[in-house]
Design a binder for these strands. Structure first.
Lengths: 141, 141
DNA sequence: CTAATTCGGACTGATTCGTTCCGATTTGCA
DNA sequence: TGCAAATCGGAACGAATCAGTCCGAATTAG
């Protein structure tokens, strides 16, 4: 029931990237220094994020990262799914999950999609703009 | 973002135990045969369940398991917490989590409790009686 | 064309999860 | 009262996934 650390780091990384949205391209090392995390770890995170289509990467000298979409169009669900795959509490809710052994005889299976939808809805309600906004409020305090 | 298999098995086991509520005591091996799972695995599950106070165990000959509380007073959240500990997506929401390194500087931390509460509420809304009820409906079909 | 800087994927170590087994305890019956 | 059967409880083993680290390929500025 714990979120993986990589996904947690991804959220922080995306928040930091949104902060540098107007500044154009930002290197992964710079983000790592800003959020106080190991640089190689951040590199691994941004790799998965770009593969998922949330970040746009530019290689070569003066390269860097930038958001592929507006911050308002990115939610927590997108970031978590980019790192950990589809949101599925159990194997049953996954498409074509035939490794449970119970399958049709399982009594609780019809109830899992409800919980799954509730969780995904809670994650989809939080947008990246809200995270950056909170950060600004903290700086004002 | 995946629920552990042990927790999934625990839910099925509790549902099966609720089915035998009127029959008094039921052995763990009998439950294992009923839900088509390895007997030792079920033993480990029921051990944690009894330690959490959800099941009452009676040792010795003619011993077995039975629900410690009415089925209506047991929710999915109770079962999951019994196996996987407190519901905490990130280390921040856990009480006294001082191993993040960011702590006060984290911008997303204030938002996690909201998602956490949404998830826990979704789990707490499903009671054990509903699971058994669904099972009966399936048998009628 | 050179060189500097960057991302991208592959490798190693560690922690946790899942499974299995054997011992301690308790009750029922002779 | 003693024996014996059956049960739960905890401890040990193996496997899988995760976190972290490193080096190579690609690209662009000068």
């Amino acid at each position: 029931m714990r979120l993986s650390n990589l996904a947690d780091y991804a959220v922080v990384t995306m928040t930091a990237a949104a902060r540098h949205c107007g500044g154009g391209r930002v290197s992964a090392a710079e983000l790592a220094q800003e959020i106080q995390l190991p640089a190689p770890t951040v590199q691994k995170v941004v790799s998965k994020l770009t593969a998922a289509g949330l970040l746009r990467s530019v290689r070569g000298a003066k390269g860097g990262l930038q958001l592929a979409r507006p911050a308002a169009a990115i939610t927590l669900a997108d970031i978590v799914e980019a790192i950990e795959g589809p949101i599925a509490l159990t194997a049953c809710v996954d498409s074509g999950a035939h490794d449970c052994g119970l399958e049709q005889n399982c009594a609780v299976r019809p109830h899992w999609p409800i919980v799954n939808q509730a969780l995904r809805g809670a994650l989809a309600d939080i947008r990246l703009t809200q995270l950056a906004q909170t950060d600004n409020q903290r700086e004002l305090a």
